[in-house]
Design a binder for these strands. Structure first.
Lengths: 205, 205
DNA sequence: CTAGCCTTCGAACGCCCGTTTGAAGCGTTC
DNA sequence: GAACGCTTCAAACGGGCGTTCGAAGGCTAG
């Protein structure tokens, strides 16, 4: 399960990502994590200090890359002469898609959905600090592309878009990957459907 | 906090709803629940048998009403001569809105979102058994209203719609109720925005 | 009044939790 | 090869967990 070639720290992070995604932060114990990682129990507190800090490191590791990739994609779209709503949405989704394709990335995506479901203030603060400003940047660009849309309507619709994406990427819904389709293709299809749906929703009369 | 006029069973259910919504099923203990309910610890196992069964009863209590109300609203729309997509979506949202306005209902809505985030198979099975067939009925009606939309696109979009609703109703997003607006008005506004957004998304070219 | 039943109660059960500790291992540096 | 850091280890800590138990309480029917 866990590759023995990686360092203790990395093995813990990987195992924790899987187990927390599966059972929740309170539901998965450090004993389960260290056992899956083939690592001594005390290693968590040695390398991360506490369970809570391990969770934070888990998010930091992935979110730093994700937010950077999203900002880069947004800047690219922004600098093009005639950006479309679809391109902006694509810039938002594509990096998340790449993340989900990484080793363990799909677990992390579900973890992210969990972080939203947890109303725990400490965790929400942490996620929004590392994540919030990117959403604001996207909101600004989208607002420019929909100049006739009142601000309150825009914010509502952006919430709906976030929800739709979170939900779909976490495999909550009834959509199941058909047999004979690679994960990659499945995600590509999901992204295409999402961009069409979200763009139309944002443009609603 | 907990009304002493209600029965032990009801006090436990109310307190459990609040605490599980706030801290998660694994995160809130029966000792916290019974303490908040002003009830002896052993009462949970006496009245419900186990923590897991308490959780099931929690969902049953609300979902039975919700699904019945949704089916009734759908039948009403169905029987009208010329049903619109907006009316069908309204029939889906309105009962959830009423539920959220009930005493403790807003906690339950967040609990429902948690149930989706938990990938726990037992809980998912239970929720989908009590919840799934209603979604299928709505899907059928919506499919008739969008005869040119391929089936796979329809299912993707319905997933997006579910996600948008779940997310928005659980207060995950950045939308905050403005001061001086009642909960009732806030939810009414949310529903209007949602129906417009979802209808447009479903009708996307 | 009393017998019976449903409910509540305090106390305890065994178990697992996150964290800490001090010793053991081990490669690097003088 | 001794001394030093960094890492791993087994073991234990106090505490909270879900659940169980037998006694006590309190209501109703005879």
């Amino acid at each position: 399960m866990i590759n023995p070639h990686f360092s203790t720290k990395e093995r813990i992070l990987s195992a924790a990502e899987d187990l927390f995604a599966k059972s929740g932060f309170a539901g998965a114990s450090l004993r389960q994590v260290t056992s899956a990682a083939n690592v001594n129990l005390a290693a968590v507190n040695y390398h991360f200090g506490s369970k809570e800090n391990l969770i934070n490191e888990l998010f930091k590791r992935r979110l730093d890359d994700l937010t950077a990739a999203r900002m880069a994609a947004l800047d690219k779209v922004r600098s093009s002469r005639q950006a479309t709503l679809e391109q902006v949405l694509e810039a938002f989704v594509q990096p998340a898609l790449s993340l989900a394709s990484e080793r363990g990335g799909s677990s992390f995506v579900r973890l992210l959905a969990r972080a939203f479901a947890e109303h725990d203030q400490r965790l929400r603060r942490f996620v929004s600090d590392n994540y919030g400003h990117v959403l604001k940047e996207f909101a600004k660009v989208i607002a420019q592309l929909l100049p006739n849309l009142p601000k309150d309507a825009l914010y509502w619709r952006l919430d709906f878009v976030s929800g739709a994406l979170t939900y779909a990427m976490s495999d909550f819904g009834m959509i199941k990957k058909p047999a004979g389709v690679t994960d990659e293709q499945h995600r590509r299809t999901a992204a295409e459907h999402f961009v069409r749906f979200a763009a139309a929703g944002l443009r609603a009369p």
